Each structure stands twice: as structure tokens, then as C-alpha cells.
Simulated scan of single mutants.
Amino acid sequence: MPQLTPKVLGVAAATGLLILLGAWWMGPSLFGSSSGPERVFTDATVTSPSDCSDADAQETVRFDLGGRTREGRLSGCGHDQDEQVRIAVAQDATSSGSPVPVALAATAPGVSDLRRPVGLGLLVLSCASGGAYAFLLARGPRPGLVRPSAA
């Protein structure tokens, strides 16, 4: 069995860091491109709330976009009448009398918040713990350790 020297462990750690830096640099396109329409974030007021017991709950919201007041259809529930919510609207959304489909801003795709760095940090921790576990398995039992007997 080959020896796990500090040099071997250093090469493994450096390779892991390079992979993580590559994943960070590639960004969202690493796991698929977000080729959807560009979104505009704005505040909206809930005008017609929906009960969460409805199977296909949709709420109606009112918001200003491009100097015009528009209505939007939000797939969701549980908001109160006249509650302020932050929404994402497709930049090329046109209102032809019918409500424009909108989404909550927190659920819109993007990398402008802390989710991606936290996710990559958790990836680092999982890689480190997996490497430590593999090291302990490869090292084998330590001589001189007393094992409890199965009495």
C-alpha cells in the first residue's frame, strides 16, 4: 500500500482547490445556462390574495413598470391584501389587458445573493470531510489502539 505523505496529500488538496476555483469561475453556466428572458425586479402590492388550500393558487398583484401600472399573476399563496412583495417580471413583458405572469424575486434565477457562495462553501466542507474520511480509511487501524471487547 502506498504511503500517504504530506506531498501526496498536498497535491490532492491543491487539485481539489483548483476544481473548486474552476467551478466558481464558470458560474451558473457550469450546471446549465439560464437562457430565459432578462428580468426586472420591482415592488408590487397584492390586490387579490389566494388561500393556500387551493390546488393551483394564484394571486393578483399590481406594480409599476415603465411608468405604467400593470397587473400580474403570481403563482403562490398566503399573502395578505395590500401586502408589499418583491417580484421579478420579464423585461419584455407586455400587458394586453391580461395579467402578466410574475415570480417572487427570491425565487428568480440569478447569482446576486449569497446562495452561490454558501453553496460553494458547503461543497468545500463536503470535499474536505470526504478527503479526511478517505485518509482515515487508507491509513487503517493505528497500532496500539485497544478495541473494546464484545462481552
Rank of each mutant, 00 (worst) to 15 (best):
A14H: 06
V102H: 02
P143D: 15
L122A: 13
G144H: 01
G97C: 07
G97P: 12
R115V: 02
P101E: 01
S126M: 14
A108C: 06
L114A: 15
L104M: 13
A13M: 10
P117M: 00
G27Y: 00
R68L: 05
Q58V: 12
C52W: 06
D113F: 05
A151N: 10
S96C: 07
D43V: 01
A108H: 07
E83W: 07
E83K: 03
P148A: 15
G144N: 08
P117S: 00
S48D: 10
S149R: 15
D54R: 11
T69V: 11
V11W: 11
G121W: 04
A23T: 11
R86Q: 11
L137I: 13
V124W: 15
L30I: 06
L114F: 14
M26L: 11
G16P: 02
S96P: 04
T5L: 06
R139Q: 13
G67W: 04
D51E: 13
Q3K: 13
A12H: 07
T5D: 02
G140V: 03
R68H: 06
R116L: 10
R142T: 15
D80N: 14
G16F: 06
A55E: 11
G36K: 08
F31T: 03
G110D: 00
P49R: 07
G36Y: 02
L9F: 04
T45H: 07
T42H: 00
A138Y: 08
S96L: 08
G130P: 03
G131E: 09
R142E: 15
L123N: 02
A23I: 12
L65H: 12
Q3L: 12
A14N: 06
L74Q: 07
V85T: 07
V40A: 02
L9M: 14
S33L: 03
A134Y: 02
S95W: 12
R68S: 10
V118I: 15
C77D: 06
S75Y: 09
R147N: 03
A105H: 03
V124N: 03
S98W: 04
P28D: 13
Q3H: 00
R70Y: 13
A150V: 10
T47Q: 04
L74S: 06
T94E: 14
L74P: 04
A57V: 02
D82C: 02
Q58D: 02
D92R: 00
V46M: 06
L125S: 05
T15R: 00
T5V: 04
G140M: 01
V8F: 10
G76M: 03
D51N: 11
T45W: 06
A13I: 09
S75F: 11
V11A: 12
P109H: 11
L104E: 10
G32F: 06
